[in-house]
């Protein structure tokens, strides 16, 4: 019997606090694939790489390193379902393993709280856990509800695969790994011109100027409309998911343009493909449905549901 893969589950902010359906779906999918997710007690904000990394590099790296040391103490690799958290934790871990001066400064901060960065574990993304640990064959075997005939567009986002020469994950100009995982769910991949551009939320842009951030998102939707649209857009990141999902509600206000795309995190897509019902992980809690009082387009997704949920969150 091979040893079970176990990961410290880094939740971050957006997954547990705004899109908890992603957390629940991850728990279902990892269990189905025989991988353990361990609670990472007392983890904080990663902290946001474009925000904190832009303010003060040593503070950013110190807070990220504190999170990494929680996993070091448990002697387990970290996994996260957020491109932003992955960027902070992976980048900080990498920089601290390669930059003696930064490591010295960070360990001076960590000494204040009785911790030390040792560099003994690896930081992974759900995409790595799914592709490199579980493997495509195991994923394909587990699919009982294939999304046959569903038009699926992808938004891989930026920080899992970029910067490519340092992260060495995939070719960021022509990536295939995220697509391979999503296609295992059986949907029809729909390419569109702006698939690889940023959602617009990162780098502290959404925080300071939401309209500019949404302008990126709108460009992506328009580029997708130009090829006939899609039934679903899949992403490996909750901040991208928020920008694409809640962003549709915000775009309606700022641009008077209306879009109706169902947005799913890759673990939500797989949870459904593995035969879980949408209410098992609360797919309808996505903020666009809560705010617009609508539901996923069940018919297009090929999913039969019993009844609609009431809105919990309102504006």
């Amino acid at each position: 019997m091979p040893k079970k893969h176990r990961f410290m589950h880094f939740l971050g902010c957006i997954i547990p606090h705004r899109y908890p359906s992603i957390q629940k779906a991850a728990e279902l999918v990892f269990e189905d694939l025989g991988m353990d997710l361990l609670d990472m007690e007392g983890a904080t904000c990663c902290p946001a790489p474009g925000v904190f990394g832009s303010f003060d590099r040593v503070t950013w790296a110190s807070i990220a390193a504190r999170n990494v040391t929680i996993a070091e103490q448990a002697n387990a690799n970290v996994t996260t379902g957020c491109n932003g958290c992955f960027a902070s934790l992976w980048d900080a871990d990498y920089e601290l393993k390669h930059d003696e001066e930064l490591r010295k400064a960070v360990n001076e901060s960590l000494a204040e709280i009785g911790r030390e960065f040792k560099g003994t574990i690896e930081v992974t993304h759900y995409v790595d856990a799914l592709y490199s640990y579980a493997g495509l064959d195991a994923i394909k075997k587990r699919v009982t509800r294939p999304f046959t005939g569903v038009r699926m567009a992808l938004h891989p986002g930026c920080h899992w695969m970029r910067p490519k020469n340092i992260k060495k994950k995939d070719d960021s100009e022509r990536p295939h790994i995220f697509r391979d995982i999503c296609e295992a769910a059986g949907a029809e991949y729909v390419p569109y011109k702006d698939e690889l551009i940023c959602c617009g939320a990162g780098g502290a842009v959404r925080t300071a100027d939401v309209k500019t951030a949404l302008d990126f998102t709108k460009q992506k939707f328009d580029s997708l409309e130009a090829v006939g649209g899609a039934d679903i857009i899949v992403t490996p990141c909750p901040f991208c998911e928020l920008q694409l999902d809640l962003g549709q509600v915000e775009i309606q206000k700022h641009f008077e343009a209306e879009y109706h795309y169902d947005i799913m995190h890759v673990v939500e897509l797989l949870a459904l493909a593995f035969g879980h019902e949408p209410e098992e992980f609360g797919l309808t809690t996505h903020l666009q449905y809560q705010m617009r009082k609508n539901e996923p387009n069940w018919e297009q997704l090929g999913i039969e549901v019993k009844k609609a949920d009431d809105a919990t969150v309102t504006e």
Partner: peptide, 17 residues
């Protein structure tokens, strides 16, 4: 936000900060 978590079948407060 806590209610949203309960609705998806999770404890109201996550094990983070």
């Amino acid at each position: 936000w806590e209610k949203l978590r309960e609705k998806v079948g999770l404890p109201p407060v996550p094990p983070n900060a």
